[in-house]
Measured scan of single mutants.
Amino acid sequence: LRLEVKLGQGCFGEVWMGTWNGTTRVAIKTLKPGTMSPEAFLQEAQVMKKLRHEKLVQLYAVVSEEPIYIVTEYMSKGSLLDFLKGETGKYLRLPQLVDMAAQIASGMAYVERMNYVHRDLRAANILVGENLVCKVADFGLARLIEDNEYTARQGAKFPIKWTAPEAALYGRFTIKSDVWSFGILLTELTTKGRVPYPGMVNREVLDQVERGYRMPCPPECPESLHDLMCQCWRKEPEERPTFEYLQAFL
């Protein structure tokens, strides 16, 4: 395994491009020591290896001592969030954005069929390849993070704006909380990567959403798509659509 080009840095580690087995181009995620327990990670990795779908980033291998390494397929255009905010983002029109959403829903419909939960679905965790191919990455890892700023769910590192209220408040993460996050991801797509709930801080978002506030229809977004977002944001988790439905609708 060779680490060649550093692609990015996040709160919990770095991402590199490299070569595996001398020939395969891969992405390598390294986790800061202390982010998660190697034992817990190894268990999760076994499950992650079983998830194989064309719209999920394929896991190739893991190094399960500290520092933990995760070796996955390489996606040339990086994260969907950076892609939307970058040069190419300007030229993306609604049909392409909807197609990308459908690809993500397709990957998540598979996660749904496998009775698995992602827990951290957002544009930053979707990767883009050639020809606007989108794949879901980092599934299941969020559960293992041991950082206090994260586990408190009120901490600075927790993605509260993407998280369903029952998950943020009571830790009830299910495929239905993933559906909520998918609704937020749809706003990221239609606004080219704007942060959700602009002008609001995490605490406010939690309070307002509890009181029934939902983001309005983004500019140039059809009402039918906003309606779909609002279905994803129904207060009762069981009233939210399935990913199978979302995939078919898109």
Rank of each mutant, 00 (worst) to 15 (best):
E4R: 15
L7T: 15
L7E: 09
G8M: 02
Q9T: 05
G10V: 02
G10L: 00
C11L: 04
F12L: 00
F12Q: 02
E14L: 15
V15L: 01
W16I: 15
W16C: 15
M17F: 14
G18K: 01
G18S: 15
W20H: 15
W20P: 09
N21D: 15
T23E: 12
T23G: 12
T24D: 15
V26F: 09
I28H: 01
K29I: 04
K29V: 01
K29E: 00
K29A: 02
T30S: 07
L31T: 09
K32F: 01
P33T: 11
P33V: 09
P33E: 13
T35C: 06
M36P: 03
S37K: 04
S37P: 08
P38W: 14
P38M: 10
P38D: 14
E39T: 10
E39H: 13
L42W: 10
Q43H: 12
E44T: 01
A45K: 03
Q46R: 06
V47Q: 01
M48A: 03
K49W: 04
K49T: 06
K49M: 08
K50Q: 11
K50D: 13
L51S: 03
R52A: 14
E54F: 12
K55T: 13
L56I: 14
L56R: 01
V63T: 05
V63L: 07
S64P: 04
E66C: 15
E66V: 14
E66S: 15
P67S: 04
P67M: 03
I68Q: 02
I70A: 03
I70C: 04
M75D: 04
K77M: 10
K77F: 09
G78M: 06
G78R: 11
S79C: 09
L80D: 01
L80C: 12
L80V: 13
L81G: 11
D82M: 06
D82C: 09
D82Y: 04
F83S: 08
F83D: 05
L84P: 00
L84C: 13
K85E: 12
K85A: 08
G86R: 11
G86Y: 06
E87G: 14
T88C: 12
T88G: 11
G89W: 10
K90H: 12
Y91I: 08
R93G: 07
R93Y: 10
L94E: 04
P95R: 08
P95L: 07
V98P: 05
A102P: 04
A102Q: 13
A102L: 09
I104C: 08
I104S: 07
A105C: 14
S106W: 10
S106E: 10
S106H: 14
S106L: 13
M108L: 06
A109L: 15
Y110R: 05
V111G: 01
Y116H: 05
Y116R: 03
Y116W: 07
V117A: 04
D120I: 00
R122T: 02
R122H: 02
V128A: 06
G129R: 13
K135G: 03
K135T: 14
V136P: 02
A137T: 03
D138Y: 02
F139T: 00
F139K: 02
L141R: 02
A142V: 03
A142I: 00
A142L: 02
N148K: 05
N148C: 07
E149Y: 13
R153F: 04
Q154N: 07
G155I: 04
A156V: 04
K157V: 14
F158M: 04
F158V: 05
F158A: 02
F158K: 01
K161Y: 02
K161H: 00
W162N: 03
W162L: 01
A164F: 02
A164S: 13
Y170M: 09
Y170I: 09
Y170R: 10
R172T: 09
F173A: 04
F173G: 03
T174V: 15
T174E: 05
I175M: 14
I175C: 15
K176H: 11
S177R: 01
V179G: 09
S181G: 05
F182C: 07
L185Q: 06
L186M: 07
L186R: 01
T187L: 07
T187P: 03
E188C: 00
T191N: 10
T191K: 06
R194A: 10
P198I: 07
P198H: 08
P198N: 05
P198L: 08
M200G: 04
M200I: 05
N202L: 05
R203T: 09
E210R: 08
E210Q: 08
R211T: 08
G212I: 02
G212W: 04
C217V: 10
P218G: 07
E220A: 11
C221I: 08
L225W: 08
D227R: 14
M229I: 09
C230M: 09
C230H: 14
C230L: 10
Q231Y: 12
R234T: 10
R234K: 10
K235Y: 09
K235T: 13
E238S: 12
E238T: 10
E238V: 05
E239M: 13
P241I: 13
T242A: 12
T242V: 14
F243I: 15
L246K: 04
Q247I: 15
Q247H: 11
F249K: 06
F249Q: 04
L250R: 07
